[in-house]
């Protein structure tokens, strides 16, 4: 056990070192290509130093895109979280209900199968027509993108319930309703979390697409506007911010999953 702990720790240290080296190599190559060799003009490919400078400026300045970095982050987060949470709140229960109740399955599944293959960005024009370019349209698009993986995974999770587990519950006198909550949903939980994670990823990606098309604030908008101003340094700042926030989300959701999903991921 102790032996095992030591080995685990060694592995973790190794992993950390390799990760750091990987990032250093990336930034090193980038630095050499730009600041040393000047392969491309600055307005196309800025050096890491310029990006850091732009980042520091952007913490306080609203030039040239109308908001500070935090302003953009807040706008993006508001849209993304509104759409994502709505998608999860509607999608997960719907997926569960579709898998558990035959009638709902029969009624909803054909409709869902029709909507599912429509790419999320195809919804953008219609949503803009309906909701304008404010929070509503973008949240609605994110909603669609988050909703679909939530439904699919919750559905698949409930369908994984083993008949023998339902038999056992039945011999214990559990009603069908009780079986849903004590057997089927716990069985589905790992896949429900998979759905939540996938849809968080798609929601965050869709957000940028939506903001690049129609917006006046947000990280996607920041990228789009600075392209027209040829400010590659600010584009990179926005991109790295998007990546960083996405990573933080994933880490948070993994921690939540660890807390709720017990007894291994073996369905």
């Amino acid at each position: 056990m102790n032996e095992y702990a030591i080995q685990k720790r060694k592995e973790r240290i190794k992993f950390t070192i390799v990760s750091v080296i990987s990032l250093c190599v990336f930034f090193g190559v980038w630095y050499v290509c730009t600041a040393v060799l000047h392969l491309k003009p600055d307005y196309v490919l800025p050096s890491p130093v310029q990006v850091v400078e732009a980042f520091i400026q952007k913490l306080t300045q609203t030039n040239p895109d109308g908001a500070t970095l935090f302003g953009h982050i807040a706008a993006s987060l508001q849209v993304a979280l509104t759409g994502y949470l709505l998608g999860a709140i509607v999608g997960v229960p719907l997926g569960i209900a579709m898998a558990w109740f035959r009638r709902i399955d029969l009624f909803v599944t054909p409709l869902f199968d029709l909507i599912r293959p429509v790419p999320t960005i195809a919804w953008i024009p219609l949503m803009i027509l309906w909701f304008g370019i404010g929070l509503g349209a973008k949240a609605a698009i994110i909603f669609v993108s988050a909703f679909v993986p939530c439904v699919i995974n919750a559905y698949a999770g409930i369908k994984q319930t083993k008949p023998v587990h339902l038999w056992v519950a039945q011999t214990f006198g559990a009603s069908r309703r009780e079986m849903l909550f004590t057997v089927a949903i716990p069985t589905a939980l790992p896949l429900i979390f998979t759905g939540l994670r996938i849809s968080l990823g798609t929601a965050w990606m869709t957000l940028c697409a939506a903001e690049m098309l129609a917006s006046n604030k947000g990280l996607g908008y920041m990228i789009q506007l600075n392209r027209s101003l040829a400010r590659a340094d600010l584009i990179v700042v926005a991109m790295l911010t998007i990546g960083l926030i996405g990573t933080i989300f994933t880490v948070g959701l993994n921690a939540l999953e660890k807390k709720f999903v017990k007894g291994g991921r073996r369905g």
Partner: peptide, 30 residues
């Protein structure tokens, strides 16, 4: 099915998401 008849199946029939205690008290809890 009814609680007067308990069934023991092959290994896979334990609830993987319940502890040993959770499994054993499942029936009385229901």
């Amino acid at each position: 099915p009814g609680p007067d008849r308990g069934v023991v199946y092959q290994t896979t029939a334990l609830f993987p998401f319940c502890t040993v205690m959770g499994n054993v008290e499942f029936g009385p809890k229901s």
